[in-house]
Design a protein around this nucleic acid. Structure first.
Lengths: 126, 126
DNA sequence: CCGTATCCGTAAGGATACTG
DNA sequence: CAGTATCCTTACGGATACGG
């Protein structure tokens, strides 16, 4: 399942090894902003509609990487809570600026692909 | 090729729509730190060994999103230079903290516990 | 409620050859 | 040098059904 093929010599590459894929950033973001969550809560909170399969898979990998902590209450009905480790909290903070950039330019991004290709040099409507 | 299926309501999701995939962050990082590059230079500078096909594909998408600017000198032999737009520069700055996180914790990510990591010269300084 | 287990389609991405 | 054009393989990720 998980094959960390090689070692990383570049910081960004290492970060991407941990946060790669479609969902990890978004999961991280929920836990970073909304704190500890149960499995079902987390599933509903992640934007885009993640499947149970993907959520549990990504959580396992994040746990292996020391980003996420899993607490199983071993009860019936089951109750499991996920939260960030200190390392995960740091990583969450590191993504804050990325989120801000997206928020700031979201209108432009949402319209980028339909627009005609010719954009006047140097001009960036905002 | 590019199908931006929907609009994004979350800043992080919007950012990921632009920077998603395996290579875009790394391309962005090169242009952000090393400035304008020719096609071949860029290809050699991106860590991990990107193919020509992927590089040109990602560059086109980044150009459509207003992140990268392409300058064609229309000469023989061909000379094309890629650089970041103001929007791209901003985005590059937003990824800096992510790179720092990776650099800081690279030992742990690489598998922890073992030998120290020798950072090869020529990759991203940090 | 919190997962596991399969099946399966798509597309991301690599390899190679070719062009102006 | 800077791309195009194909072919091909993998794995990402969705859908569904089932289990403790």
């Amino acid at each position: 399942m998980r094959k960390r093929k090689r070692t990383y010599s570049c910081g960004l590459e290492a970060s991407l090894a941990v946060t790669g894929g479609r969902w990890k950033f978004l999961i991280l973001w929920v836990l970073s902003n909304q704190g500890t969550k149960r499995f079902g809560e987390l599933r509903r909170a992640v934007v885009g509609g993640i499947s149970e399969k993907m959520l549990i898979q990504e959580l396992k990998e994040l746990e292996l990487d020391g980003i996420v902590e899993r607490k199983d209450f071993k009860r019936v009905p089951p109750r499991v809570e996920y939260s960030l480790t200190p390392l995960g909290i740091e990583l969450g903070e590191a993504t804050a600026s990325l989120c801000e950039w997206g928020t700031k330019h979201i209108d432009r991004i949402n319209g980028a692909s339909q627009k005609s290709v010719s954009v006047e040099p140097g001009v960036f409507p905002q």
